[in-house]
Design a protein around this nucleic acid. Structure first.
Lengths: 202, 202
DNA sequence: AGCTTACGCTACGCAGACGTAGCGAATGTG
DNA sequence: CACATTCGCTACGTCTGCGTAGCGTAAGCT
């Protein structure tokens, strides 16, 4: 069901209310647990009105996730460490203080068995990785980082511990930890560039 | 509803069938999407029989997760690197080849908003961390590792990238990557032990 | 002001899942 | 072999959510 971009202020208002309520409810009850009826009740928008704009619960959920794709600016502090600190601190911040934090595991879970959600998740991850990738490429050009280091590997080494601590270890994910991760990975990279005691990947 | 340990072979058989079917379905449809009726159909066990042994869907789900708590032996290869390689390769293996892999994000998601699932998840994580912690302590005693390194931090640095690549980046999580992570973290730890250019945590 | 469009509301019918009761058949147990 | 349990099955009544139809009202547009 295709719809025009929506210019009517009434549509814009109701859409915003519905999406906000949907995000709230998905944080609280999960994706599957969020029903159209509950969204209607929470948002104060009539159920029929919701069905006029979305075909079903999944379409609404996907649309809601799409609104979260806020573009964080790519940092450019002049040094790799500065860039990475900013990125990883931002990630830590997003996973703890932002309302989207509770949505992340829901999205990951949904992506595991639903291709449509997988696409959204992939897009979301790509958006975040792009900034990091840019910073890494810049560092290589500056001679600050060996070109042998695979950006994808470095990103996993950096973001992984943040995610893991937040959702698995369930420890404190503060700026101190973010800094520790960045510095640890950087020292690892530099040491390995000087004395590579295992063959570089590929 | 308390039940005796169950000695009747009929009970044991039906329980096993039900739990196996429940795990299958949870992998496919998620936790919330797994209904008692579907479990009954999949397992071939009558719905009424299921209700005779579990009070509701959540009780069954929790019980099913509990059966996955298989105790992997703590490795003791003589070197820290050997132990960690074994542990992290095992983790990578579990997250790719095992049927439990699809359940992990479901459990994490459920844990995010349900204390009972959070407890199961916590227990599961603690079980895995214990082995790593033992290996790290042993390495400290051998003088192979600085006592300044917080085991919790090291565990996050090691396991994080594996999880992240499996569930977020969605790249190849093979033995090569597991080895890369271990070696990277180890070189980082050693370099930082020699020239600590940022204060150790705590 | 007059036309158009979206909204709210009520009222449905439908489907799926819940959880229980009762009974005969099958399966263990001593 | 007799007794005790458990199981499978059928049959419910209930509830919740889905998705739609129809109608009057309110809001926006020109």
């Amino acid at each position: 069901m295709k719809r025009a971009p929506a210019t009517d202020p009434r549509v814009i208002r109701s859409r915003a209310s519905v999406l906000a309520a949907a995000l709230e409810l998905m944080s609280e009850k999960g994706i599957a647990g969020t029903t159209i009826e509950a969204v209607a009740a929470r948002s104060g928008i009539a159920k029929t009105t919701i069905y006029r704009q979305w075909d079903n619960q999944q379409a609404l959920a996907l649309d809601a996730f799409a609104t979260l794709l806020n573009t964080a600016p790519t940092p450019d502090t002049g040094t790799l460490r500065g860039d990475l600190l900013e990125l990883i601190r931002g990630l830590a911040q997003a996973l703890t203080a932002s309302p989207a934090a509770a949505l992340m595991p829901a999205l990951i879970d949904a992506a595991e068995r639903n291709p449509t959600f997988a696409a959204v998740h992939h897009q979301e991850a790509a958006r975040r990785h792009k900034a990091a990738s840019t910073a890494l490429t810049r560092a290589v050009h500056r001679g600050e980082l060996s070109p042998d280091a695979d950006p994808a590997d470095v990103i996993d080494l950096l973001a992984g511990p943040i995610f893991y601590r937040r959702y698995v270890s369930r420890g404190e994910v503060d700026e101190t930890f973010a800094d520790l991760v960045v510095d640890h990975v950087l020292t690892g990279l530099h040491a390995r560039a000087r004395h590579p005691h295992s063959a570089p990947r590929r």
